[in-house]
């Protein structure tokens, strides 16, 4: 349903993505892992057209995404790494932003409060402004905004960073249940191996701009790739590694 073909992106001299290929089936939950600064967020931004790739193509339902981006966005939700809440609007208006365009205010607000409850935020948060929230609360409000209109495709950029382990587990379960219940297609970026196991159908490991390994989540423990094994076990590796040839 969503396919990335030969995607490359450089910032100046720095090659961030180097011919990445990726396929995503309808209703599938893909988790992208990889070291900090390897281009995971840039990958999502390129898919969305927020960053112009140097080469490559994004296909959605077999056609170039660029040609029908508006249709795609209509059924899409995104949690940004830094939440990116609109700080001029109260939390509930953030969450209900998309809803407010085609339903009465009272109904949109009710749905917003329900979505906030799903991410563990009470109704008292609804009228606060984003600047009045903690980092983890902002993240969860951003998550509520991403899922507010029940999108068919959702991107989550590090949904559990900044959360306590119990909250993180609840968010993992929430993302999994959204994929299971609504049949949404999801890409999640995370550094948290418990998130990987809870959320993923399939896992992709990004390393120095390339997809180093990808496969079903059930196979990550049996994979032969030494970097993936160290990643899962959280073992230190020499920091400066030679560029992939």
């Amino acid at each position: 349903m969503l396919a990335v073909r030969g995607l490359s992106k450089a910032f100046g001299q720095k090659q961030v993505l180097d011919s990445v290929d990726l396929d995503l089936a309808e209703g599938e939950s893909l988790v992208v892992i990889g070291g900090s600064g390897t281009g995971k967020s840039v990958l999502l931004r390129c898919i969305l057209g927020l960053e112009v790739p140097d080469a490559g193509e994004i296909l959605w339902r077999g056609r170039p995404l660029a040609q029908h981006r508006a249709d795609f966005m209509d059924d899409f939700g995104m949690l940004f790494q830094n939440a990116a809440l609109f700080d001029s609007l109260p939390v509930w208006r953030n969450v209900a932003f998309r809803l407010l365009r085609h339903m009465p205010k009272a109904r949109a607000r009710a749905i917003a409060i329900e979505k906030l409850a799903r991410v563990g935020l009470g109704p008292e948060v609804a009228d606060l402004y984003p600047a009045e929230l903690s980092g983890g609360m902002r993240k969860r409000a951003g998550l509520a905004r991403a899922i507010a209109a029940d999108p068919r495709v959702i991107f989550f950029d590090e949904p559990t960073t900044g959360l306590d382990p119990i909250r993180a587990a609840a968010i993992n379960a929430l993302i999994r249940s959204i994929v299971d219940e609504t049949g949404a297609t999801a890409i999640t970026i995370t550094h948290d191996m418990s998130s990987v196991r809870a959320i993923a159908d399939r896992v992709a490991l990004l390393d120095r701009g390339r997809l180093r390994w990808q496969g079903p989540v059930s196979e990550i423990d049996r994979a032969g790739d030494d970097y993936l094994r160290d990643f899962i076990a959280g073992r230190a590796r020499p920091m400066a590694r030679v560029p992939a040839s």
Partner: peptide, 20 residues
């Protein structure tokens, strides 16, 4: 200042992802 802050904190990108 307002739009610049929205730009560098990805709020303008967020608008795009909300079909706005």
């Amino acid at each position: 200042a307002e739009l610049g802050t929205m730009r560098v904190t990805e709020q303008i990108d967020a608008l795009v992802t909300l079909s706005t």
